[in-house]
Write a protein that binds this DNA or RNA. Structure first.
Length: 114
DNA sequence: TTTGTGACCGTAA
DNA sequence: ATTACGGCCACAA
């Protein structure tokens, strides 16, 4: 899978996250057809930030923590955006059990794995 | 060409 | 709840 297309797939997946929900880097990687390549999602978002608007703030680590260091400008902006969508951020982290996005396709993949 | 570095993740201790 | 480790891989030095 070509790099450019992978980036496009990632951006497409991120755009599917509904307002008021969050997804993990790994989850997005899975949905983009790039299992095990969560780090590439971060890279793709870094690039996308300079291009078109993407709901990058809805992507967090698998454990719910923001990928940016607590207190950093980026972390503050992400927290601000999440809170404005109704998602509380406590100690630089959101409660995945409550806010995690569960698309049908992802549920299927999850069932096949376990 | 090799090496270090991440907007990461699952597992194990 | 944390920390450590191995896997992951594009990128830059």
């Amino acid at each position: 899978m070509p790099k450019a297309e992978a980036i496009r797939q990632i951006q497409h997946a991120v755009m599917q996250i509904p307002s008021g929900r969050v997804a993990s880097y790994g989850q997005i990687a899975d949905l983009a057809g790039l299992p095990g390549r969560a780090r590439m999602v971060g890279r793709a978002l870094r690039l996308a930030a300079e291009e078109q608007p993407l709901p990058w703030h809805r992507v967090v680590r698998a454990d719910g923590k923001l990928a940016f260091p607590a207190g950093s400008d980026s972390a503050n902006e992400q927290r601000e955006r999440l809170v404005s969508e109704g998602i509380p951020v406590v100690n630089n982290r959101v409660a995945m059990s409550q806010w995690r996005w569960e698309p049908d396709i992802y549920e299927l993949l999850h069932k096949l794995k376990y």
